[in-house]
Design a protein around this nucleic acid. Structure first.
Lengths: 211, 211
DNA sequence: AGATTAATTGTGGTCAGACCACTTTATTAT
DNA sequence: ATAATAAAGTGGTCTGACCACAATTAATCT
């Protein structure tokens, strides 16, 4: 199989083209997390580019958490849930208070959307895990809303929530110690399929003003 | 000033150390977006590493959207409040599961969130552009909600909307031909700061069931 | 002197080749 | 067959060489 980086065009850096090609290779060859990518030297030959350019692309993807390299073995696709990445970004980005607030605000709004969707979509059996979460004495907020985001049955929204959640954790804005009751309230609204009260209870949980 | 990469320790790849050092340099020198970083060759010397390693670090940060490089000029810190991250991850990950419905649904929910936030935040002067959009005979749906997303005053949310909008366009899910009146209705609710009716009108616009 | 033009310098972009450290595989000796 | 050894494969890093482009400086022409 022959891949070929755009040849004569001098614009658009080579390493970006390689990233593109890698995406194609992954997609065409249906590579899954854990699978091995072609070696740096092989890619260099196949794409007609220098090995250093290949490395620039791979290192970038590695920092993003999309691949993993093991010396002497090779480069592998990773199961990405990039906490590493987010942490890195956060140390770079998060000095900006406005950005901080944006993350929090967005997370809350997405959670409310998930709540609405989940209420529309859930079936009696699918909320069993959610019920279990509120059994114990303490409720793990992250797990709680992760489950709700799953119940929303929208992969895209779930991914967005996961990313925001990573950011959120990196920000070290711990949710204020919350009462288990508040989660139970949400659950109650949930089972009544009452969106309005669910939202109301969410506002209480997050200490948001009702408007 | 002398920076020095951990010397004898052979573990922990060099380029990662350089990323670390760069962060320190940025912080210590109080570099802001737009400012120039030391050149690759200078970093190479100062950190006692090869230029190729410096480039691996810089390319990775570039792909992350944290820095920007201009040939012949140098490397500059970028205004990275926009979180390129979501975009990158989405183009990489979402390929296989871009269920049209998820994209559409998510876009609609985000738009509703923007609507809510915009109503909270807008000032009389800031909605002038929005008013202009609904003057003509036809209303550009994309522009309309782009403006609303801007009025929401949340950069992250705006970014998310932009990406969703791209997907939306790519998927060729054209908004059904809509009546100008519906946009006027939304505007009216908007100016009354009436979220409930704004949402109601949005549902009409999108032909969604009210629940 | 002032403006224009040309040469020089600085910077990122890319490639090629050379080692090193480590892992896997093949070969050989027992 | 098993174990020890050698070879090959792979990522990690450095060096040096060009190229393309931008900014600066020097030279030249009014």
């Amino acid at each position: 199989m022959i891949y070929e980086v755009q040849s004569p065009k001098v614009e658009s850096k080579v390493y970006l083209e390689i990233v593109k090609q890698l995406r194609m290779i992954i997609s065409k060859e249906k590579l899954k997390p854990g699978d091995k990518l072609p070696s740096e030297r092989e890619l260099s030959e196949r794409l007609n580019v220098g090995r250093s350019s290949v490395r620039e692309a791979l290192r970038a993807l590695e920092l993003l958490g999309l691949i993993e390299t093991r010396r002497g073995e090779g480069t592998f696709i990773r199961d990405f849930r990039g906490n590493h990445l987010v942490q890195l970004l956060s140390t770079f980005i998060l000095e900006d208070e406005k950005a901080k607030n944006d993350v929090m605000e967005t997370k809350y709004y997405i959670e409310m959307d998930c709540l609405r969707l989940a209420i529309d979509n859930y079936s009696d059996s699918s909320i069993i895990p959610l019920k279990e979460l509120v059994q114990g004495n303490t409720v793990d907020d992250e797990q709680f809303f992760h489950t709700i985001a799953q119940l929303a049955d929208n992969h895209l929204l779930l991914r967005i929530w996961l990313i925001l959640n990573d950011y959120f954790n990196a920000l070290e804005i711990k949710p204020s110690e919350t009462n288990r009751t508040l989660y139970l309230d949400i659950m109650a609204s949930f089972e009544n399929k009452d969106k309005k009260s669910a939202l109301f209870n969410y506002f209480n949980l997050r200490n948001l003003s009702n408007s």
